[in-house]
Nucleic acid binder design. Structure first.
Lengths: 349, 349
DNA sequence: CAGGGGAATTCAAACGTTTCAATAGACCAT
DNA sequence: ATGGTCTATTGAAACGTTTGAATTCCCCTG
């Protein structure tokens, strides 16, 4: 091995500049190119060299400059999370985001949060990210049956994972909760409790999970041969006062519902409030089964029956999948359907 | 003005590469340097030229490459939000983040979320961001009286805004909620309702807002000459079962509290549950005043009295301040103390 | 008409990587 | 010695900006 001419005459520089490849190169006597290759474990570099370089880099505290790498390779080391900021989610955002960052920590990827409100052109958002190279991958929620974002991303071959399935035939990576099973289970639980007139408020029609909920609800209710209604005129995203009014309205009839299935936590609270406000007693005159994502329901009295959707695990799964997609793995087998689980009653009283 | 030699002989290229400064330069006949300066409205460039260039850039859909700019200038156009992922905040994260992104949208800055859990060395996190140039500014929450992150950032002159004040004498930018006033108001409201034995659960001692709450609570309670206790052995961050147990325990005495001040939403629910579970009726045997950040309390029955902390506005304010800090404004006058407001009862029943 | 001054523009270097193509040895077989 | 093959390393260009210094051009003054 050719030892380089002695360039390192100055022993220590006081202000301790941030080390670059050049610093490491000078310290080890190799060229910048070799150091770069050594650090990426390029097999063309002698093993011994790789070790030397790795040690020097460690010792000097070398960390590659993201901007430079990004400029050179075109890869941003960034993942964008499209986040709806208009609606109320209680624990949703927090848990979901926690799961994502948990997985991404230490991978060198960072998450940027991009507000994604129905108001503007959500497609432009995605286009902007792709075109201007703002991220290597995208995560989004509130997936629609024929989600235009998914379509665009698929056409471009851009890595993404959706929270929720689509109806496209081309496969893509997704993570979803089995809302059909949830609805079915909820119906069964209410039926078991002797409830005969079930009520459900659905999300907006364009979301794919709306279809799953509807199907699960309708088929289970029909199978059980009981009365059932899907509350008209409001959706999960309606302002809570409207939802409350719709619920109270539906209770004014001669035979009001005696079993409620709530897909969101807020809706569950609204439902409970509507019951109380119309003179009914939850647990006596009607039962409520709710999907819950946060532990708050442990502390609601009277207790509500809940089915747990683990959003932190969802975030984790989506981040892991996105990593695999960005590493080039085909989307064919990248999906997870979370089954409704029991809440982790770690003693919630 | 010297018209350049005709370089643009090829009229249209099919694959439509992403335009760079060079593209715009070629299209206008100016040099890359001029185009760059023109786009940044450099007064040295003739006004007419600036206009021409701006138009061409617009027409071609030119957007500066962030990586290149970042490499050259050292500025990242990124803001890091240090987010605690361990604790439960209900609407906190969502509202806060929404406020931040709302302000940052269109400024060219993006937000990255960095998990900041007490477990690891939170200082290293900050050091890492500064050293490796991962952001131009930092936002963080859960500020401590002598917050080491704040100290480090101040020493380095790195732009940041904290959610919460510190006890340092050197000024820095912060946004805070007047928790002292909140505690005081809460005491007064309970006293007005005839409550004589007040109870409060505080956050961990090291947080600066804990001191404000304590002071407000103690001084108001003493002024009113009524009994008061700060629940021992648990904090706001304790697991909810522990909080619940502590509350039930405190109700076992001969004269249990009849007025509760809850600093968090979860705690408020736990308190309500503890009351019910020990046979007391909220609103009759005891009253609860809670700080609320999300609208869910509109839908809790019986209704709780709440004081609203607008976290979306807090996020907005912090983002705005950070922009000003990053633009070089000194921190002297950059602080906002949000006064406890009335909840925006837009009709919640 | 030399040359000073100012306005407008351009040149070229630099930021820190990655990577293609080239080079330098070493070893082996002719 | 000559050439070939293989391994280990290096030189240099490129990614798209920004910016200090240089250049060009024109007008004006003496």
């Amino acid at each position: 091995m050719t030892r380089p001419p002695e360039t390192q005459t100055l022993p220590i520089e006081a202000p301790t500049e941030r080390p670059t490849l050049r610093t490491v190169a000078q310290a080890t006597g190799f060229s910048v190119a070799t150091v770069s290759r050594a650090l990426s474990d390029d097999p063309r570099i002698a093993l011994k060299t790789r070790k030397t370089v790795a040690e020097a880099a460690e010792r000097l505290g070398y960390v590659p400059d993201r901007a430079a790498r990004r400029l050179r390779t075109g890869r941003t080391q960034v993942v964008s999370l499209l986040l709806n900021t208009e609606h109320e989610f209680l624990g949703f955002t927090h848990e979901f985001l926690s799961g994502i960052t948990e997985v991404l920590r230490g991978t060198g990827y960072s998450v940027t949060v991009v507000p994604d409100d129905i108001g503007e052109d959500r497609l432009d958002l995605v286009r902007n990210i792709m075109r201007n190279n703002l991220a290597d991958g995208i995560l989004f929620t509130r997936t629609e049956c024929f989600d235009p974002r998914a379509r665009l991303l698929m056409e471009s071959g851009f890595p993404f994972v959706s929270h929720g399935r689509t109806d496209f035939t081309t496969p893509h990576a997704w993570v979803d909760f089995d809302n059909e099973a949830f609805a079915r289970q909820a119906v069964e639980r209410l039926v078991t409790k002797g409830r005969r007139r079930l009520s459900l408020i659905l999300p907006e029609d364009r979301f794919s999970f709306t279809q799953h909920l509807r199907y699960g609800f309708l088929s289970a209710a029909r199978a059980a041969g009981i009365e059932h209604e899907i509350v008209a005129g409001v959706t999960l995203d309606s302002p809570t006062p409207e939802i409350a009014e719709a619920l109270r309205e539906s209770r004014r009839g001669p035979t009001p519902p005696d079993g409620y299935i709530c897909v969101g936590e807020v809706t569950a609270l609204v439902t409970m409030a509507a019951l109380v406000d119309t003179g009914a007693t939850p647990g006596i005159d009607a039962d409520v089964v709710a999907k819950r994502a946060s532990p708050i329901f442990d502390n609601i009295r009277p207790r509500i029956e809940t089915v747990f959707e683990d959003l932190r695990a969802t975030g984790r799964a989506m981040a892991e999948m996105l990593l695999r997609r960005m590493a080039g793995e085909p989307p064919e087998d990248l999906h997870i359907l979370f089954k409704p689980g029991q809440p982790d009653w770690n003693g919630g009283a």
